[in-house]
């Protein structure tokens, strides 16, 4: 399986996927940590994929999205953006709306 197919499969078979440095429990970078914090506050389950485990994935995801930095967030297969975008969308409430529209369970009551 090519790396493109692996990434494609992951983002299409999980509601929310975050390509990040480190893991949801132990982010290894402040930007990945902010994304993890947003989803923790919202109570949204997501699949974290640690790009530090594999240069192939780390480079592959950048090619897949034509996006040069990590983290990268997908909802229902759609690329949403990186840390800044996710944080801004969370603060404005757009992220919560998007998740609800796409049918992703949001357990937390947190508001910005």
């Amino acid at each position: 399986m090519s790396i493109h197919d692996f990434i494609d499969g992951q983002v299409k078979s999980n509601d929310v996927v975050v390509f990040m440095k480190g893991t949801p429990q132990f982010p290894m970078c402040g930007f990945s940590g902010q994304v993890a914090q947003v989803f923790a506050l919202l109570g949204v389950d997501y699949k974290g994929i640690n790009v530090l485990d594999s240069d192939e994935i780390r480079n592959g995801i950048k090619e897949y999205t034509s996006w040069p930095t990590i983290p990268q967030v997908f909802v229902k297969g759609e690329f949403i953006g990186g840390c800044d975008i996710v944080r801004e969308m969370y603060q404005s409430g757009e992220l919560q709306t998007l998740l609800e529209e796409k049918g992703v369970p949001v357990m937390g009551k947190a508001t910005a």
């Binding site: 930007f31 996006w67 040069p68 930095t69 969308m89």
Partner: peptide
């Protein structure tokens, strides 16, 4: 939209990102 704005900035700074600029926060 946000993605398009970030892509515009990322694109103009692609050389820097390829040359050791590791993180780019964009507003």
């Amino acid at each position: 939209n946000r993605l398009a704005r970030h892509r515009l900035v990322n694109g103009l700074l692609a050389d820097e990102l390829a040359r050791g600029l590791h993180a780019l926060a964009i507003e």
